[in-house]
C-alpha cells in the first residue's frame, strides 16, 4: 500500500496533469484504485495541491522580482522560532520560509512586481516586526533551475537515430 502511494506520488510530483487512467496503466492497477489512492492522499494532506510551473515570460511581459531575505530574529520563550516564522509566512508576499543553521535564522523568499515593492514590504512589514533583528536582501537575477526543472532547456531533443538494433 505504502509502496503504491510512493509510486503514485513520484509520478504526479513531476506531472500533476497525468490522468488517472494513464497512472492506472503505468502502475498496472485499476483506475478506481488510483482515484481511491488520490482521495486518501488528499485526505491525509500528503497531497497539498496541484500547482503548475509556469514560465510567465514566455506569455506576457510580466516582470516578477524575487528576493531571498536572510533574517535574524529574536526567538521567543516557549515557542522558539515558530511564532515569529508564522508572523512572517502569513504574508501573501512571502513564498517560502525556512529555518536555517548558520549565520542567520530564517530564509524568506519574497515575490513582488518591482524591487521597490519588495523593498517597501521588507522595510515596512518584515523589519518592522519586533522580533526581527536584521535583514539582508538578495535579489534573484536569473533562474536557471527551479524545483528540479531546468528552465530554458533548449537542447533536450532526442539525439538518437530513428532505428537501431
Amino acid at each position: 500500500m505504502q509502496e503504491q502511494e510512493v509510486e503514485l506520488l513520484q509520478l504526479i510530483e513531476k506531472n500533476a496533469n497525468l490522468e488517472p487512467s494513464k497512472i492506472a496503466k503505468l502502475m498496472a492497477v485499476s483506475e478506481e484504485e488510483v482515484r481511491e489512492l488520490l482521495r486518501s492522499l488528499e485526505e491525509k494532506k500528503a497531497i497539498l495541491g496541484y500547482s503548475t510551473l509556469i514560465d510567465w515570460a514566455k506569455v506576457v511581459q510580466k516582470e516578477e522580482v524575487t528576493a531571498m531575505v536572510d533574517v535574524k530574529v529574536q526567538p521567543a520563550r516557549g515557542s522558539g522560532f515558530d511564532k515569529v516564522a508564522e508572523r512572517i509566512y502569513r504574508f501573501p508576499e512571502v513564498k517560502a520560509v525556512y529555518l536555517m543553521s548558520g549565520a542567520y535564522d530564517l530564509s524568506v523568499s519574497v515575490e513582488g512586481k518591482t524591487m521597490m515593492e519588495i523593498g517597501r514590504f521588507i522595510s515596512e512589514k518584515l523589519s518592522a516586526l519586533d522580533s526581527v533583528l536584521s535583514t539582508t536582501t538578495h535579489f534573484v537575477l536569473k533562474r536557471y533551475k527551479h524545483d528540479g526543472i531546468i528552465l530554458d532547456d533548449e537542447d533536450d531533443n532526442d539525439k538518437r537515430m530513428v532505428v537501431t538494433p
Binding site: D158, R160, M161, V162, V163, T164, P165
Partner: peptide
C-alpha cells in the same frame, strides 16, 4: 520512433 534499441 519505437525502433530504437537504446535508452532515451
Amino acid at each position: 520512433s519505437l525502433g530504437v534499441g537504446e535508452p532515451d
